Every structure is written in structure tokens, then in C-alpha cells.
Computed example of a mutant assay.
Amino acid sequence: MAKKKALTNVELCKGCRLCVGACPVGAIEALMQVNKKGYEIIRVDEDKCIGCGNCYTMCPDYVFSIEEV
């Protein structure tokens, strides 16, 4: 079985941080950086990510995709 991980497109992020609370392993953190639209963005720690898809399911802005690695 291939390992999965979450990939992000932070330019779509609007900083709602729903994904941060949805991650069961704490792999997502909010950054004090902004994207081109002026929204604070998030970062996924790829070493912690288990590819569960909770962030993908929770995100209203389609920031995440789940990919096999």
C-alpha cells in the first residue's frame, strides 16, 4: 500500500484554519505569512502527515489534494 500525503495550494487558502483542528496528528500549522490575496496561510509538515484526508474534507476552499508518494 502506497503512503499518502496532503499537498497544498496556499494561494487558495483564506486562513479559516478549519484544517488545523481537523488534523489528528497536528501536521498542519498556521503561519504568520500571507498569500497574494492577503490571507494568512497554513503549512503541512510532510513528516507528520499520514494522508488521512481530514484536511481535504474540511477545507471549503479546495486548498488540499491527497497524493500517493
Rank of each mutant, 00 (worst) to 15 (best):
G53W: 06
G15N: 11
G38L: 07
A2C: 06
T8C: 02
V44H: 09
K3G: 08
S65L: 05
E11L: 05
P60D: 00
D61F: 11
D47G: 13
C52Y: 04
C59L: 05
T57C: 01
D47W: 10
G26W: 05
G51W: 11
V10M: 13
L18E: 02
M32C: 10
E67R: 10
E29Y: 06
V34L: 08
E40D: 09
D45Y: 14
Y39L: 03
V25P: 12
M1P: 15
E40F: 12
N35I: 09
P24S: 01
Y62T: 09
N54Y: 11
P24R: 00
M1S: 13
P60S: 00
C55A: 03
N35L: 06
K4C: 04
V44K: 05
V63H: 01
E29G: 11
V69S: 03
R43S: 14
K37P: 11
I50G: 07
E46K: 15
L12Y: 10
C55M: 05
M32Q: 09
L31M: 14
K3F: 06
G26F: 01
I41T: 03
E29W: 01
A27N: 14
P60C: 00
V63E: 01
V25S: 05
Y56T: 02
I41W: 00
K4F: 14
I41H: 00
D47P: 11
L18F: 05
G51N: 10
D45G: 09
A2D: 13
E68V: 15
E11Q: 15
C52F: 04
K5E: 12
V63S: 02
